[in-house]
Write a protein that binds this DNA or RNA. Structure first.
Lengths: 110, 110
DNA sequence: CGGGATCCATTAGGATACTG
DNA sequence: CAGTATCCTAATGGATCCCG
């Protein structure tokens, strides 16, 4: 699964490029969330995909997963310090994307 | 195909997120290229995917396609002015990606 | 509660052949 | 030269059931 990417842009696209990853990160910005919280916040994501994306983000070091060995189990996800280095980048990406969404309805150049 | 994206990050990932799109853009930064040039520059991309990604980027307004009605045909691709607004964003993404590639071999935190 | 396992649908990407 | 068209495989995402 880990292969060399010729352009580092592909790296960040790979890290962020899962259908629900941006939303997951978005919800973790301000506070730690439990698995069930994320399920409620992102209701269209299936359990499987939520789990899978959370695992991916964890492997990349972006988020942290804390397990409380209680019954019933409790698992908390949070943005790691390293993950926070993504935020400024995400902001720039967001700004361009937001503008692009507006541009999409512009008239074609003559 | 056009659907609302809840987070604008998804927009830019959608625009850049094709296997060969970053490379296409990279090669168009400094100069206009013909289709056959891009084929040589990105030899692993199939004709089909190259065409498909070029069409996508054109539809998004990122690149321009100029057809010379000669025989044999000649088609030139170039970055549009609007496409150039992506460059600073791409740079930031690149920088993070580059650093991330180094981090990947770091030892896990204790 | 927070998953794992399994099976299915959709999409992305690739190989090859053909054409104006 | 710059593609289309067709067929195929791989990867992603989703639905459902089960379990400690």
């Amino acid at each position: 699964m880990i292969h060399q990417r010729q352009c580092p842009i592909e790296t960040i696209i790979h890290v962020l490029g899962g259908k629900w990853k941006p939303q997951i990160l978005w919800h973790l910005i301000d506070s730690t969330k439990r698995f069930s919280d994320l399920e409620k916040l992102i209701p269209n994501a299936s359990q499987k995909m939520l789990t899978q994306h959370l695992r991916n983000l964890e492997q990349e070091g972006i988020i942290e997963r804390k397990i409380y060995p209680t019954v019933p189990p409790k698992v908390e996800y949070s943005l790691s310090d390293y993950g926070k280095t993504l935020l400024p980048v995400a902001e720039v990406m967001c700004a361009w994307g937001e503008n692009h969404n507006k541009q999409e309805i512009r008239e074609p150049a003559s």
